[in-house]
């Protein structure tokens, strides 16, 4: 999967893939300079460039990126670690599975936004409540993928542990966890996408501080649409970068597996 991507990055292919973005930007330039659309609603490229210059000069750009990434990382780690642990508990213990899996199946149907009132009640409106809000988006994918991964272990392989007299920990470390790894990596990938979205949600519904979501809020309220466009573009680029990074790490961890076992 990852090797396929690499081999496709020839100059001619990059050029081909750039066709649509170039057309979109070209249309944008034309539409705003020729007056096809109201410049009060859609900022022209020069306005966006102005806003960009200002943001880099006053340092808000980096502060916002840093703020959003820190929140993303903190929230993701919190949710992913707890989700991984709960997924292990449910995947390894029949009793825990029987007791708690139906409850989790019920809880995961609830939108993250529905948790907001409870979160602010328990954690206030500071960074902790944001981390929890964002973390929920990583929690469920990690629980689900870890659980499914552990349940996908072949009976044959589990029997091998008995034959070779592995201790429970060795059995987990050498057989169960590697078998579950592709599924878990899939959960991490999904969790990162969802938490990145939740990071913006946290900006909107809780205090924004320095954040990319803050650009959107500020831009919309003060009619600076250049700021909004920069915010949207940053979200897309950074989100894509995070996804790319996880795919690369996942591809590396699964580099020795037959292709069908890759996530």
């Amino acid at each position: 999967m990852s090797s396929k991507h690499k081999s496709s990055l020839t100059p001619s292919r990059i050029a081909l893939r750039s066709v649509i973005p170039v057309l979109v930007v070209g249309f944008w330039v034309l539409a705003t300079t020729r007056g096809w659309i109201d410049p009060k609603i859609w900022a022209s490229p020069s306005k966006v460039a102005d806003a960009w210059r200002q943001l880099t000069l006053n340092g808000f750009l980096w502060k916002a990126i840093e703020g959003s990434l820190l929140r993303e990382t903190g929230g993701f780690l919190l949710g992913a670690v707890v989700g991984f642990l709960v997924g292990n508990l449910l995947g390894l213990s029949r009793i825990a599975d029987w007791l708690a899996t139906p409850l989790l199946g019920f809880l995961k149907q609830i939108s993250v936004f529905a948790w907001l009132p409870l979160i602010s009640l328990f954690f206030g409106i500071g960074e902790w409540s944001k981390a929890v809000f964002i973390g929920i988006s990583a929690f469920f994918p990690l629980v689900t993928s870890t659980y499914a991964g552990l349940h996908s272990v072949q009976r044959n392989h589990a029997e091998l542990a008995r034959l070779l007299r592995l201790s429970p920990w060795q059995r987990y470390r050498k057989i169960l966890l590697p078998a579950a790894l592709p599924a878990i990596l899939g959960g991490i990938q999904l969790g990162l996408v969802l938490t990145w979205m939740a990071t913006v949600g946290a900006d909107f519904f809780m205090s924004a501080g320095y954040s990319i979501g803050g650009f959107l809020i500020q831009g919309a309220s003060s009619l600076k649409f250049g700021l909004v466009i920069i915010g949207v573009a940053l979200l897309g680029i950074i989100g894509w970068g995070l996804d790319f990074l996880t795919r690369q790490v996942g591809g590396y961890l699964l580099r020795n597996r037959p292709k069908t076992l890759q996530a």
Binding site: P102, G105, A148, H151, Q154, R155, N156
Partner: peptide, 14 residues
Amino acid sequence: DSVEILAPSFALAS
């Protein structure tokens, strides 16, 4: 016999 899945209950895995 060869391939058998440990516990094919994917209640949580949607």
